[in-house]
Amino acid sequence: MRLIAALLLALIMPLAAAAQSPTDDAAIRAAIERQLEAFSSDDGAAAWSYAAPSIQQRFPTPDAFMALVEQAYPPVYRSRSHSFGDLAQTPLGLAQRVEIVDGDGVAWDALYTVEEQPDGSWKITGCYLAKKAGVTA
């Protein structure tokens, strides 16, 4: 799975930034930021609320969603810090690059895929992680 994530991250490197409005860029970053904050404070309902309907269907309760994230995405679940990179159109759809430093000081590249909802909000459809080789903070 990490190999797949690394390949996906490598694929978007040369892609141009997505042509989104500054308002959309800010809304996408805010959704990711708020979900990371919700993970840090163990607020499952808030974290789950930023997941797209397709994710909510697969994990129909906030507790089920939090259990998945805690087990499969520990750098996201307990990040020490993060910074936003480019927003790009990818084969997976619109994706926001985020550099995450986990609780142990290890740096990760995260690729968050997002989709706009009928109400104009942005929801997270996936997160792909790749550990940065030899990088600690």
Rank of each mutant, 00 (worst) to 15 (best):
I4H: 10
I4R: 15
I4C: 06
A6K: 15
L7P: 04
L7N: 10
L7D: 12
L8K: 04
L9K: 13
A10D: 14
L11W: 12
I12F: 05
P14S: 13
A16D: 15
Q20K: 10
S21A: 06
D24A: 08
A26I: 12
A27E: 10
I28D: 05
I28A: 09
I28P: 04
I28S: 07
A31M: 05
E33A: 11
R34H: 13
Q35V: 10
Q35A: 09
Q35W: 11
L36M: 14
L36A: 00
L36K: 03
E37I: 03
A38C: 12
F39Q: 01
F39T: 10
S40H: 15
S41C: 15
D42F: 14
A45D: 14
A46E: 12
W48M: 07
W48H: 03
Y50P: 01
A51H: 01
A52Q: 09
P53F: 10
I55E: 04
Q57G: 14
F59Y: 03
P60I: 03
P60C: 01
T61W: 12
T61S: 02
P62G: 03
D63P: 03
F65C: 04
F65K: 02
F65L: 08
A67E: 04
A67P: 07
A67T: 04
L68C: 02
L68P: 04
E70W: 06
Y73T: 10
Y73R: 01
P74W: 01
Y77H: 05
R78L: 00
R78W: 02
R78I: 09
R80P: 11
R80N: 03
R80C: 11
S81K: 00
H82M: 05
H82G: 07
G85H: 10
L87Q: 00
L87F: 10
Q89M: 06
Q89N: 06
P91W: 00
P91R: 12
L92H: 04
L92W: 11
G93Q: 09
A95C: 07
A95G: 05
A95I: 01
Q96C: 00
V98T: 02
E99Y: 06
I100N: 12
V101A: 11
V101S: 01
D102G: 07
D102A: 02
D102K: 11
D104Y: 02
G105D: 04
A107M: 03
A107W: 02
A110C: 07
A110P: 11
E115G: 02
E115K: 00
E115Y: 09
E116V: 04
P118H: 06
G120V: 06
G120A: 07
G120T: 13
S121L: 00
W122R: 13
W122P: 01
W122D: 06
K123P: 08
K123R: 10
I124F: 13
I124L: 14
T125K: 01
T125D: 01
T125W: 07
G126W: 04
G126M: 07
G126E: 11
Y128T: 03
Y128Q: 05
Y128S: 08
K131F: 09
K131Y: 08
K132W: 15
A133H: 15
G134C: 13
G134H: 14
V135I: 14
V135R: 12
T136F: 15
A137N: 00
